[in-house]
């Protein structure tokens, strides 16, 4: 029961994050939503780690955190550069790929 609840919380957190990525235009918020999705995935890892008695899940979470930190550095750098160029952080300002 507890297990199911935690799984559900993880899944729903992930999905809310995904929803945020889909509907927000602000690049920083999109980035935050991605962090939210990672957090959701982390919860699932932790839950499985607990219920299966595997420490590996926690190792994976640590790696995800490290990668997320790296991603934050790069992501923020990109957003800063983008802001400087386009005068805003709305992703609809990036339209070079538009057909």
């Amino acid at each position: 029961m507890v297990m199911g609840l935690i799984f559900a919380i993880g899944v729903i957190t992930f999905c809310i994050g995904a929803l945020g990525v889909l509907i927000r235009k602000n690049a920083v918020v999109m980035f935050l939503c991605i962090e939210l999705m990672l957090n959701g995935a982390n919860m699932l890892f932790m839950a499985v780690s607990k219920f299966k008695g595997l420490i590996e899940g926690q190792v994976a979470v640590l790696f995800i955190m490290a990668v997320a930190a790296a991603e934050a550095a790069i992501g923020m750098a990109i957003i800063t550069a983008f802001y400087r160029r386009r005068g805003g952080i709305e992703v609809d300002k990036a339209e070079l790929l538009k057909w």
């Binding site: 729903i12 809310i16 994050g17 929803l19 945020g20 509907i23 918020v29 939210l36």
Partner: peptide, 8 residues
């Protein structure tokens, strides 16, 4: 969930 919705 509430805080997540807040983020979005």
């Amino acid at each position: 969930l509430v805080s997540a919705l807040g983020v979005v």
